[in-house]
């Protein structure tokens, strides 16, 4: 499964979650430092949230980015 974290392509095994995608992008430390993960519409998503092919998520420092 291919997803995008801050526009970087990440490949995940089925069942892997937002946490794995963020880890694959090397951004887990940023979450530990207080950043959050958002979907394309600026909705926060949980680290255990499940992903689908071509989903795009963003690790950012503020809430409700309103990307769309």
């Amino acid at each position: 499964m291919r997803v995008f974290v801050n526009n970087s392509e990440i490949h995940l095994a089925p069942g892997m979650t937002v946490r794995h995608a963020v880890m694959g992008a090397g951004l887990l430390e940023e979450i530990n430092a207080g950043k959050k993960v958002f979907d394309e519409r600026g909705n926060e998503v949980g680290l255990d949230g499940e992903l689908s092919e071509n989903d795009r998520i963003y690790v950012e420092g503020q809430e409700e980015t309103g990307k769309v």
């Binding site: 998503v45 949980g46 255990d48």
Partner: peptide, 24 residues
């Protein structure tokens, strides 16, 4: 559910209202 989305405001697609309440 499933994506653990904190959908702070409902979204409309056509005449369908879509909601989701984050996690836990």
């Amino acid at each position: 559910g499933h994506s653990h989305t904190k959908a702070v405001k409902e979204i409309m697609v056509g005449n369908t209202v879509i909601v989701q309440a984050w996690e836990h």
